[in-house]
Simulated assay, not measured.
Amino acid sequence: MEEKSFKEVNKELNLIMTGDWSIENDDANRVVEFIKYYNNNIDELDEGVEFEFLELVISSMNEAILENKVDNEMTFLFKEFIYPHLSNELALHFQTIIYWDAIADQEEFPVGFLIREMLGDD
């Protein structure tokens, strides 16, 4: 099976290719869509795309919190999406999660507090 590259994912999700892909494409209105896409395509995603997708979802969730667009479904799906990446401290994904925890801030990075809660560091 051929893996999906950024080019294919960008086309399917109408995203742009940039040097800061996950941040430039974050969207408070698409958190659930991004998580569902990831879950439905995880076995087909190129490793680089998979890594950046975690950042895309976290950054989009951060925007959703800032814009007061979070609902119960979004929170549930986000936690369900993040939890598997918390189990392996050596994984690259875990380092991304720790980064967001470390920059937690009510004004700019409130998603860090949600991640902190999930890590049990609150």
Rank of each mutant, 00 (worst) to 15 (best):
F81K: 01
F81M: 03
L13G: 09
F51E: 10
L15C: 06
V31L: 03
D43I: 04
T96H: 12
L54K: 07
I82M: 04
L90E: 13
M74R: 04
A104C: 08
L66M: 14
L92G: 11
S87M: 13
K79E: 14
M61D: 06
K36I: 03
V70W: 05
F51K: 07
Y99I: 00
L92Q: 07
K11T: 01
K36W: 00
I42T: 01
I35M: 02
S60V: 07
D27L: 05
E89S: 13
N10F: 03
E89A: 11
V31K: 04
A28G: 11
E67Y: 10
Y37M: 05
L45M: 13
N29D: 14
H85K: 13
E44H: 13
Y38W: 12
E47Y: 09
E108V: 02
M17R: 08
E50N: 13
A104V: 09
L66C: 12
M17E: 14
M74K: 07
Y83A: 03
L13A: 10
E108Q: 12
L66W: 11
E44F: 15
L86C: 03
S60P: 04
E63Q: 14
T18A: 03
D26Q: 15
A64T: 07
M17K: 07
E33K: 13
M17C: 00
Y37A: 01
I23T: 12
I42K: 12
L77G: 09
F81Q: 03
E24S: 13
L45Q: 01
L92E: 09
E8V: 10
E89R: 15
N62V: 03
F53S: 05
F109Y: 14
D20P: 00
W21C: 09
L45N: 01
V31Q: 05
Y99T: 05
I58F: 01
S87R: 13
D43F: 07
R30S: 07
I98G: 00
D43S: 12
I58V: 15
T96K: 15
A102P: 00
L54F: 06
D46S: 08
G48T: 02
D26K: 15
S59V: 10
D71Q: 03
E33W: 01
S22P: 00
F51C: 03
W21K: 08
N62M: 10
T75R: 12
T18G: 11
N40A: 15
F109S: 10
A91P: 02
D20R: 08
N39F: 11
H93G: 15
L92N: 09
H85C: 01
F78I: 05
E12F: 06
L13I: 11
I97E: 00
E107Y: 07
S59D: 12
V9F: 05
E67Q: 13
I97G: 02
L56G: 02
L15A: 08
